[in-house]
Nucleic acid binder design. Structure first.
Length: 466
RNA sequence: GCUCCCAUCGUCUAGAGGCCUAGGACACAGCCCUCUCAAGGCUGGUACGAGGGUUCGAAUCCCUCUGGGAGCGCCA
């Protein structure tokens, strides 16, 4: 096993950290972990106008919540400007780069002319051979891209992709304001950070030949590239604020577990036979880039919810309890006063897709129903059902052992002896204690709620039933 | 417009020439279980974009088309 694998996740803090970015981060992280390598976080903030500290913090918070911890970093490109200038000065001296004095208007005219000729717009290299500066013009610096030959990207997911150098142009690496540009910074960073595997979205595939040419100008052979397919919204179109493009932290608020989100995201583009549910440990053991597919995939909220539930049912009640507590607080429920959370988790997890749902459905354990569900009350808390509910109350009040099995036996006995059936006894009790027609099995529900609280609520229901 | 990428059920995917009358999962429908809701079990429907090749044989290889997507910035 090679121990020198180094991957990096390089988000730009110009938007929010969404699903697509998280999946990229996950694959970088998994690959590094799988090979005992190093995972690096690098913030690409060279766009000084759009990058904000708040956006950086959102990325950091998101990574923290997901548990995708970086072994090195976060590094910030804005802190590396001296290094970029150093490389540019060197390239200028070596003739690998040159000053370009073309004005924006001139470039615009060039572009329009090319478009009119149905050509791909690109810089024609007119300043390549210029020997002296132009009065009053602050130049940009361009990389001298090879004119001939081809660049072959041997992509780990796409296979060999060939680009003709003739299709590429001399890209700007330093703006007229002296700031370096993205493609150049990436190259210097990947070189300095000794990145061995560049795993990123396939929207970068077209940038790769340029970066490879610059890497070679630095004197090294490029790393392994792996371009991941895009993630689309539920409707199969590009992710936008309307559907999938929300901050990862939004998923926390909606009650998803990081384990589940990561599991779901891993299965978007990656597979291991027919297996659907993976723990993080399993994923790191099983993940391989060769099992990543090439086509874009759409987010499926239903499946994410299902996977979330699978994890809710699998993880330890103690772990889930912590998350449930957080959700209850968000609902304004004080979970410190009331029954223990772990039994509630065990009673609720197979009937909750999310922690948010679980919290909502568990609210009644902490607060007596303020009102009864109209339909459920009409059917179960009326003059007709009242006698049986009264008997149930009496039986429960006399019960020696307040445990689920004992409660079950008592209710069962009452049902048999009255000939009404278990539902006729359980359902009125359910409405009485929970306020509605849905709850975990009545015996477990009452056991969790406690005798005192149960009887008090039944009394209130009896009063309501008249 | 040019360059590059992609193409199996509604969705996520298995499939690396014969094991495919195409398998699994989500969702959906029905049934079973059942004190509600779930969970679970069983059953069912729906897919290899089109056309040409190669081959004894193609979802799998090649070509064309079609349809999606990305890039072509002094954005990242």
């Amino acid at each position: 096993m090679s121990n020198d694998v180094r991957t990096r996740f390089a988000p730009s803090p110009t938007g929010l950290l969404h699903i697509g970015g998280v999946r990229t981060a996950l694959f970088c992280w998994l690959y590094a972990r799988r090979h005992g390598g190093t995972f690096i976080l690098r913030v690409e903030d060279t766009d000084r106008e759009r990058s904000t500290p708040a956006a950086v913090q959102v990325i950091l918070d998101g990574m923290e919540w997901l548990g995708l911890h970086a072994d090195e970093g976060p590094f910030y490109q804005t802190e590396r400007y001296p290094r970029y200038r150093e490389v540019i000065r060197q390239w200028l001296a070596e003739g690998k780069a040159y000053h370009c004095y073309c004005s924006k208007d001139e470039l615009e005219a060039m572009r329009n002319a090319q478009l009119a000729r149905k050509e791909k717009p690109r810089y024609d290299g007119r300043c390549r051979a210029r020997t002296g500066p132009v009065e009053g013009v602050t130049p940009v610096v361009r990389f001298r891209n090879p004119l001939e030959g081809a660049v072959i990207v041997d992509d780990a997911v796409h296979g060999k992709v060939v680009f003709q150098n003739a299709e590429l142009d001399d890209l700007i690496i330093e703006r007229s304001d002296g700031n370096p540009t993205y493609n150049f910074c990436v190259v210097v960073d990947d070189y300095d950070m000794k990145i061995t595997h560049v795993i990123r979205g396939d929207d970068h595939l077209n940038n790769t030949p340029r970066q490879m040419n610059m890497l070679r100008a630095m004197g090294v052979e490029p790393p392994v590239y792996a371009h991941l397919p895009m993630i689309l919204g539920p409707d199969g179109t590009k992710l936008s604020k309307r559907h999938g493009a929300v901050s990862v932290l939004h998923y926390r608020e909606e009650g998803y577990l990081p384990e589940a989100l990561l599991n779901y995201l891993a299965r978007l583009g990656w597979s291991y036979g027919d297996q659907e549910i993976f723990s993080l440990e399993e994923m790191t053991r099983l993940f391989d880039i060769k099992d990543v597919n090439k086509s874009a995939s759409a987010i499926n909220p239903d499946k994410l919810a299902w996977i979330n539930q699978q994890h809710l049912m699998k993880l330890s009640p103690a772990r889930i309890a912590v998350e449930l507590c957080w959700q209850l607080e968000r609902l304004g429920v004080d979970a410190s006063k009331g029954p223990a959370l772990e039994p509630i988790v065990e009673a609720q997890r197979e009937r909750s897709k999310t922690l948010k749902e679980m919290a909502q459905a568990s609210r009644f354990f902490f607060e007596a129903p303020a009102a009864y569900d109209e339909k459920a009350a009409r059917k179960n808390l009326n003059a007709e059902t009242r006698p049986l509910l009264e008997q149930a109350r009496a039986v429960l009040a006399e019960l020696g052992d307040w445990s689920a099995p004992a409660i079950h036996a008592a209710i069962q006995a009452l049902a048999e002896q009255s000939g009404a059936g278990l539902g006729k006894v359980a359902q009125p009790l359910r409405v009485a204690v929970s306020g509605g027609g849905v709850s975990p099995p009545i015996d477990r529900t009452l056991a969790i709620l406690g005798r005192e609280e149960t009887l008090a609520r039944v009394d209130r229901a009896l009063a309501y039933a008249g």
